[in-house]
């Protein structure tokens, strides 16, 4: 842990905020500029936020896994903060992908929700990572917290390929992936370019969010540490009379 004075006095950057705004704006303009799909019509525009949101959930949980593994190897709390930050962002994007999926499903499929493999497994993944965030609140011991959540962070990532390939491995209502598959992509170039812009923009947004979320994690760890050192008397300061009752 860096000394308290260093972090609090480190100038906070405004660039991540600006980056997030630009990335969001670029995605919006690109997805409104492209032509509608011949079958789905304007509804196909929902894809340009639904797919990047799902992609970011995958990416964020992979980063959590990698950072958790690094923590278990190096025992450096900086890796724990990266893992936790990525998991929180991942949960937000998983929720976003589910919500956008529901809004897309109602006018296309005809229902908001159904229990097919893809939707069920995505819901389970969402709750497991909510559990990860809850687990981090069960102790104030930074190292114990880091170790417990790192183990879960490594194990929980198996759900990511399960969610992604569920539409290939099992018979589902959700269509198979358009991207991230071995077969050639079945999409107009203009739409593919738009989706590419949206995915890249969202990824940039994720990186900017990570910068800020890690800054927050560092501050929170410092507060926890400060509270704990405040409880422990400094050596040589213990000049009060010994509390005899406590031993009895």
């Amino acid at each position: 842990m860096t000394p308290r004075e260093q972090t609090i006095e480190r100038p906070t950057s405004v660039w991540p905020w600006i980056t997030m705004g630009v990335a969001g704006t670029v995605t919006f303009i690109a997805s409104m500029a492209v032509g509608p799909d011949a079958v789905q019509g304007q509804l196909s525009r929902i894809m340009y936020v639904h797919v990047p949101a799902a992609w970011l959930a995958y990416l964020a949980f992979f980063v959590t896994m990698a950072a958790s593994a690094m923590y278990l190897w190096r025992k450096d709390l900086a890796w724990d903060r990266r893992a936790a930050s990525s998991a929180e962002i991942g949960v937000v994007f998983t929720g976003l992908a589910i919500g956008l999926g529901m809004i897309w499903a109602k006018p296309t499929w005809g229902v908001w929700w159904t229990w097919d493999a893809r939707l069920t497994l995505t819901a389970i993944m969402f709750f497991v990572y909510l559990g990860y965030l809850a687990l981090r609140r069960t102790t104030t011991d930074l190292n114990a917290r880091a170790k417990r959540s790192a183990i879960l962070g490594v194990l929980a990532v198996v759900q990511v390929p399960l969610v992604h390939f569920s539409v290939v491995w099992w018979r589902t209502l959700h269509q198979p992936p358009t991207l991230l598959k071995p077969e050639p992509i079945d999409m107009d170039t203009s739409m593919l370019v738009t989706l590419g812009i949206a995915v890249v923009s969202f990824t940039v947004m994720y990186v900017a969010m990570m910068f800020k979320r890690i800054e927050l994690a560092r501050l929170e760890d410092e507060i926890t540490e400060m509270q704990q050192t405040a409880d422990v008397p400094i050596a040589g300061e213990a000049v009060t009379a010994p509390a005899l009752e406590r031993g009895a």
């Binding site: 509608p36 011949a38 079958v39 894809m47 269509q175 198979p176 079945d186 107009d188």
Partner: peptide, 18 residues
């Protein structure tokens, strides 16, 4: 009860649908 299962193709022109 009927649900529509759309596929993973996206085309701006119906002629291009595979």
């Amino acid at each position: 009860t009927m649900l529509v299962k759309h596929d993973e193709q996206y085309r701006t022109d119906a002629e291009d649908y595979n």
